[in-house]
């Protein structure tokens, strides 16, 4: 299913008063989506004393960057940021690469047992990955890999995210016309050649869709890091956001929100720059399952 939602051409409505009533409604309706984000970005610049006050009062010192400085100075946040970045940078290309190769075989190559294996990967896609946490934990702790990034990375690649990416790529390759392959074969390409020189270059949009999906899942992954990582310097960002607390668990909201801005900003900026790709990628995850 393609989501052509960005293709609507706005035309001026001719119904005068209705027009403005509708705009008012749109503004009101968008508040619950927009205000929390606005509040987050504003509060990240406030002192802990002013943070619960009106959003437009910054208190003594006005708008301040000290929260951001403190986040990096007093906490291993830079290290945790690096952890999240490198885990995504490592797991996403592997996830998408394996999925492209496997997806092509599932779509276009007939081999014994194909349907059975594909059914298993559909199962891996549908089952909530939390359900398999106990045996996975036993396996990884036997291997001495608790408190390393290995389980977090491997589970990104092979668990639900990976399975869905395989499915996405298979659905994509099925839609490519077979004539292209035949043409390639006539030109003397073998199957890997057809895949590499013809099918893959035609798949950039699908690869982008899969990559966006995989990046977001890696960036958001909370459950597996929660189980496998406890040492502060090993944490990834979603867990790290919960660590700006006093020893009794009281939250330093100014630091938490400043750190949240740093986690959210790259994703929101990427979304604003590539809205169509983001919406298509996420809508695909909704409709193709």
């Amino acid at each position: 299913m393609r989501t052509e939602v960005l293709a609507v051409k706005p035309v001026r409505s001719a119904r005068g008063g209705w027009h403005w009533a509708l705009y008012l409604l749109l503004v009101l309706v968008s508040l619950p989506f927009f205000l929390p984000l606005l509040w987050l970005f504003v509060s990240a610049f406030k002192s802990s004393g002013a943070i619960f006050g009106s959003p437009f009062q910054f208190g003594a010192g006005g708008l301040r960057w000290t929260n951001f400085e403190q986040v990096f100075r007093d906490y291993p946040f830079a290290r945790q940021y690096l952890n999240s970045v490198y885990i995504a940078a490592l797991s996403v290309p592997i996830t998408v690469g394996l999925a492209a190769v496997a997806g092509y075989a599932f779509a276009r190559i007939r081999f014994p047992g194909r349907n059975a294996v594909f059914l298993l990967s559909l199962l891996a896609m549908m089952v909530p990955s939390e359900l398999t946490a106990v045996p996975q934990f036993v396996l990884f702790s036997r291997l001495g890999l608790v408190n390393t990034h290995v389980p977090v990375i491997l589970l990104q690649i092979f668990s639900a995210t990976g399975a869905f990416t395989v499915f996405l790529m298979r659905q994509h390759f099925i839609t490519l016309p077979r004539e292209l392959e035949d043409a390639g074969r006539v030109d003397g390409l073998n199957s890997p050649g057809v895949f590499w020189y013809i099918m893959l270059p035609l798949s950039r949009p699908a690869l982008a869709t899969a990559a966006i999906f995989a990046v977001l899942n890696s960036w958001n992954d909370y459950f597996n890091p929660l189980i496998y990582l406890s040492r502060e310097t090993l944490l990834t960002l979603p867990l790290a956001l919960g660590r700006f607390t006093d020893p009794l668990g009281g939250v330093y909201w100014n630091l938490t929100l400043a750190a949240s801005v740093l986690v959210a900003l790259p994703v929101l900026l990427a979304f604003l720059l590539a809205q169509r790709q983001f919406i298509e990628s996420l809508a695909a995850s909704g409709t193709k399952g």
């Binding site: 190769v101 599932f106 891996a124 491997l154 990976g162 199957s191």
Partner: peptide, 26 residues
Amino acid sequence: EGRLGWLMVLPYVLGMLLLVTGPLIA
């Protein structure tokens, strides 16, 4: 073709069997 197909799905499928299908049965 059959061998090639298996070769192409094998890296993903091995990981999946070890980390998802196996644990699901376990």
